[in-house]
Design a binder for these strands. Structure first.
Lengths: 153, 153
DNA sequence: CTTGACCTTGGATTAAACTCTAAGGTTTAT
DNA sequence: ATAAACCTTAGAGTTTAATCCAAGGTCAAG
């Protein structure tokens, strides 16, 4: 059992943020002490971890509430309805994943070509890296033109 | 060349948002018409695409300004300094990627077990799916216990 | 040569997500 | 038993990222 200060310290957020999440239906402590202190258990902590993760990858608190609502009314809700919600979110997550992979590729190629690379300062720009990243793969393919195995990402 | 209304329509944002980005140093039109209209070229459009992508995966406008600054002062900046900035962002991107992959896995397993699956309504929760997703992989591994090849994501 | 749909500016307003303040009750340590 | 460090509430203030508004200039069509 954590008190509000302990839980907030654990995730490096303010106690106020936890009260804010409670007020907005995202996370309520599973119990209270005799004197009214919030008491969070391990499940509450996991739920908070989920909220913070989802937030970090660009979901709004409303989005997150949607996702968490899947848990709240478990058996009440028709399974097909749940599946719809999940699949919608999954599409969003996969779109974000694609964006991020694109990003990561560009940043990596930028990091490599920028320092130590032969053309160093010439194209030190993320935008150029983003634009050239696809052609980069093609160019690489052309270099060892005796192999044409199925490419994998 | 796009005028502000055209470019904003292209990305389904408000013209005001473009003026806002300009005021905050994120994106300036490469030129102006005689009458003072903003004129955006293809590079500006690419830059905007980058901003919107980065925003969608949870970067703040400040973060994005940092990333874009790599382009702005290309040759002015020491290459090692640029690399530092890029690598920091790359770490953030990869952390986000890991989160999202975890997310996607959980949502998929949720979508599968929830509807049609044998234990249907029993654990219709993202939190449960998130918690169990790792064990799920282990469980799956145990099923075909004659192979112990290097796992790939 | 004016009507309507654009554009300009600066400043006000909104919404989301905190973050802080005030006034007071609780717990732990001396 | 009292100070320091917690906790409670309600509500005000801040930051970020737009979004809207007002007053006026510009441009293509009739």
């Amino acid at each position: 059992m954590y008190r509000i200060g302990e839980l907030s310290a654990l995730y490096d957020i303010k106690a106020d943020t936890l009260r804010f999440y409670e007020k907005h239906g995202l996370l309520s402590p599973s119990s209270r002490s005799d004197s009214g202190y919030r008491l969070y258990n391990q499940d509450d902590s996991e739920r908070l971890k989920f909220i913070l993760r989802a937030k970090a990858v660009g979901f709004s608190l409303n989005d997150i509430a949607d996702l968490l609502s899947i848990e709240v009314d478990k058996s009440n809700r028709a399974c097909a309805e749940v599946k719809g919600l999940v699949d919608t979110k999954l599409e969003q997550v996969e779109a974000k994943l694609a964006e991020l992979q694109h990003f990561a590729t560009s940043l990596k190629s930028l990091s490599n070509t920028c320092c130590g690379g032969p053309d160093s300062a010439e194209h030190c720009s993320i935008l150029e890296a983003l634009e050239s990243s696809d052609q980069h793969i093609i160019a690489k393919k052309e270099q060892h033109h005796f192999s044409h195995s199925g490419h994998k990402d």
